[in-house]
Amino acid sequence: MNKMILGRYIPGDSFIHRLDPRTKLLATFYYIAVIFLANNWQSYLLATVVTLAIIPVSKVSLRFFLNGLLPVLFLIVFTVLIQVFFTTGGHVYWHWGWLSVTSLGLTNAGFIFVRLVLIIFMSTLLTLTTPSLSLADAVESLLKPLAKIHFPVTEVALMLSIALRFVPTLLDQTTKTMNAQRARGVDFGSGGLFKQVKTIVPLFIPLFVTAFTMADELATAMEARGYRDGYGRTRFRVLRYGRGDLLAAVVLILLTLGLIFLRN
């Protein structure tokens, strides 16, 4: 379970940790959009340099970012291979049936590879430096205008924070259940496909039962403490933009201008 770096918060007190979670959330989305402006090696170089300059500011070891790539490694390799073999144009290096390796294909594959890695680095930066509850707060705060059109913002935010809150709990429960079934002779992750599928039942049924029990108990506990709905509630964690958030915005604007300037 320790490989699941997405969604793992690393406590710290860096400039990035202290940014308002709304800034970090919006900045990540903005970055993912703006990186599509890059379309030549100069603009990709700029994006890479900026990203690699931002990462050390978080004071989180680069190893965590590389680990963040692991779960999506297959996706990256797959996308890159498709680009290599199916893009045609430019000089042809190799050709077999409808597969061909061309200079344009290689360039595109390189660009896509860099783009995916940068996007994953940035989203890993968000999840490594922001506790999930702060993220939920940020979503609630950003969705607030939708309340005007009767969108249940507080309920959605509550669902989101409960879901996030229970991810580690359910992971712990998964480990416990796996251990209990291992002790009864189940070999998770070995044997043929059929054998592996069969190990799902003794793992998931206890997990579902526990999840439902926990949900039920949580609902009772919330009612016992007088929870009704979110309207008019004050907040324990108040979000405020600061000077750092302005700086983050400036960096992103400069990045955007740079990309527009450098792209073809």
């Binding site: 416990k176 002790a183 003794p202």
Partner: peptide, 27 residues
């Protein structure tokens, strides 16, 4: 795992089978 049987805390949360008979025979 066969030599060392382990009863975890709140062991009832490991039950999954349709009947008691099946669950006990699972190990």
């Amino acid at each position: 795992r066969k030599k060392v049987g382990m009863v975890f805390q709140f062991a009832e949360s490991q039950l999954f089978a349709a009947t008691v008979r099946e669950d006990v025979a699972f190990g």
